[in-house]
């Protein structure tokens, strides 16, 4: 078994904690994990990209080959498009938040971005911000996305919940609960 995930978004959207949560859950279930991130200047409003590889045998490359990813989990619609060449052509899934983050003048028209996404064979477009707000805290949109991906990920939802608890325990029970609720809302959006 191997399951490759491209996580993408814009600096400051909480991509790193998503990567950690999924990786922790996978390791708790005995999978081997490789994670790779681009740090540095991309922290300030640039693209942020993480590759997360889950497998029963240690993955060789820290980077996912093109055409191999089972899932693109994106925090921003244009960013989801950017990494399509990494997605497995027939089976690959795209899950993306729909709120565009237009921090450059060259950002295309939103309708065009959405049209491209709608044309994909396997996709789930969701208003992660709205779902997070509904769940009680707009800052938890990243965990909404984890919830929406839960049914595809090769780990049990309970393992993800436990990983979310671990990840936010330091910040207190209220933050843990908010993130768990967001995760639940995400799951309900993709039952």
């Amino acid at each position: 078994m191997n399951y490759d995930i491209v996580l993408c978004g814009v600096g400051g959207q909480g991509g790193i904690s998503v990567s950690v949560v999924i990786a922790k859950a996978a390791m708790a279930e005995g999978l081997r994990v490789k994670q790779s991130e681009v740090h540095g200047m991309s922290q300030r409003g640039g693209e942020v990209l993480a590759h997360l590889r889950l497998a029963d045998k240690e993955p060789a490359s820290p980077m996912i080959p093109r055409g191999a990813a089972a899932l693109i989990l994106s925090f921003e619609p244009l960013e989801a498009l950017r990494y399509l060449p990494w997605l497995e052509a027939d089976k690959g899934q795209v899950i993306t938040a729909t709120s565009p983050l237009k921090n450059m003048p060259t950002y295309p028209e939103t309708e065009k971005v959405m049209a491209e996404l709608m044309a994909l064979p396997n996709k789930l477009l969701l208003d992660a911000d709205a779902l997070a707000r509904e769940a009680g805290n707009v800052k938890t949109a990243n965990m909404v996305l984890v919830g929406a991906a839960a049914k595809y990920l090769p780990v049990k939802p309970e393992s993800l919940e436990k990983a979310i608890r671990d990840q936010f325990a330091r910040k207190g029970e209220a933050v843990v609960e908010a993130n768990l609720r967001a995760f639940e809302h995400g799951r309900r959006a993709n039952p």
Binding site: V10, G11, M41, S42, Q43, R44, G45, G46, E47, P65, R66, G67, A68, L78, E79, L81, R82, L84, P85, W86, L87, E88, A89, D90, G92, N103, M104, T106, Y107, P108, K112, V113, E116, A119, L120
Partner: peptide, 18 residues
């Protein structure tokens, strides 16, 4: 090369750091 997907009409512009 393995088969991936491609964007059809748009070419996603880069997002320079700020």
């Amino acid at each position: 090369a393995r088969r991936g997907l491609a964007v059809k009409e748009l070419s996603p512009p880069g997002r320079p750091p700020q």
